[in-house]
Design a protein around this nucleic acid. Structure first.
Lengths: 237, 237
DNA sequence: CTTCACAGGTCAATGCCGTTGTCATAAGCT
DNA sequence: AGCTTATGACAACGGCATTGACCTGTGAAG
């Protein structure tokens, strides 16, 4: 049944469903995003998506090979939204910082969807554009190909990793958040200065810092290290 | 039915299953770990676990509230294994590198459990010990408290983020992996040098590099940046 | 304007999954 | 020996992804 899916440009017959909805790849992906952001990651099932669209669940298999394929399409749509209207400034370091910031922020805007998809190679249009852009910035800055690729890999996976982590945190129910806050105050705050001197000395700082995302710090450190490496290359070159 | 679970110390009757197995929390967790490492992430279902144990699946609900509870227990066992036998060497940078390596490797050894649990703050013993240790390394190295906390946060979330990302990747079914490999070869390999010059110039490097984890690179860059910062502080101090 | 191939929506069925209400029984106490 | 109850087993429920067969209206060709 893998030949059920017809490539988008070969689609012609826009036949409405029983409930009068005209399906399309975009409509399905958008509805999936809405479903996830409104009712949580668990709400994204083929059946529920069919219901939300006003179509039989099995209809979706005309557009996507399987549920995983659909998920990849959702992930790519997220990347697309994050990079919309981006333009390079000429400063590779600032550009990478902005790119990272956008990817991370875009992912956080749809935490549940990110949790489901942050780690996948989609091979779709938006992802390809992101790869090309970031690689171009690094090679343009003067990194040798091998190092440009290595730094690109660290850069993109760090952005996705933090996105997944922070998204998972943002997606937690309120009760879990309160419990976390409480854990910092009581469990960590109650530790003895003798047994846990370092925690005891920094508890207020810890509680304040751990609440937010460490991604900006990590991104800045990665870029600082990259700049230092580049200085070595240009001195040698 | 949440009162089905009896706390471990209240258990007395060691009644064997039909197939002669005597269940216990530890045996269940260990069997779950074995199941995952032997037959892949998808093999960890309540039904399959019951089968592997020689017990009815519903018996497991005498020991765990639900499948998620079971997974958390598995994850907790993982943290314990990852930090077992660790001892500081005196070189803060090398120690942090080793700590990061262990956390990451431990998580990768059991991807499925990591994916579902990397983002939770447990507040348990092992986690507390890890916090105290890493903070101690940074403060001992000479970082001011505020910066030690910031760098610690970046360090630990980087480890967890990459662990989640790489674990999710490792947890993919074989078919998805093949598809990914294929995507790099055909989709990215087939891009024109004119439209995507940077990808075209580095495709072999990309395909080779993206297969592995970027965590070692990212960790080294973070530590390099930290060392550079420390040099500034000690010069000033 | 009619014809008709087939894209695409629908139906029904399959075999997984987690979970639970109920029952049977043996372990460990007195 | 008898009682309590922890704990294993059974059967059932509803939800899940997926698929094969069927049906219908679209839209191009003649």
């Amino acid at each position: 049944m893998s030949d059920r899916v017809v490539p988008p440009d070969a689609r012609r017959r826009r036949r409405p469903t029983k409930q009068g909805v005209v399906l399309s790849e975009e409509l399905i992906v958008e509805t999936a995003l809405r479903l996830v952001s409104e009712h949580g990651a668990d709400a994204l099932t083929v059946r529920r998506l069919g219901l939300a669209l006003g179509a039989d669940p099995s209809s979706l298999y005309r557009y996507f090979r399987n549920a995983d394929d659909l998920l990849l399409a959702v992930a790519d749509a997220l990347i697309g939204r994050a990079l919309r209207d981006w333009a390079p400034s000429g400063d590779w370091c600032a550009d990478l910082r902005e790119l990272g910031r956008r990817l991370h922020a875009g992912a956080l805007a749809h935490p549940q969807a990110t949790v489901l998809s942050a780690c996948r190679v989609t091979g779709r249009a938006h992802e390809i554009r992101a790869v090309e852009t970031a690689l171009g910035l690094l090679r343009g800055a003067g990194f040798p190909d091998a190092e440009a690729v290595r730094i690109y890999h660290a850069f993109i996976d760090q952005a996705l990793g933090f996105a997944a982590l922070d998204a998972a945190n943002a997606a937690l129910p309120q009760a879990a958040h309160d419990a976390e806050e409480e854990a910092w105050r009581t469990t960590y705050g109650g530790l003895s200065e003798r047994t846990h001197p370092n925690i005891a000395a920094t508890v207020p700082l810890l509680a304040a810092t751990m609440r937010g995302s460490a991604y900006p710090t990590a991104l800045n450190m990665l870029l600082a290290a990259a700049e230092a490496r580049l200085a070595v290359h240009t001195r040698q070159g």
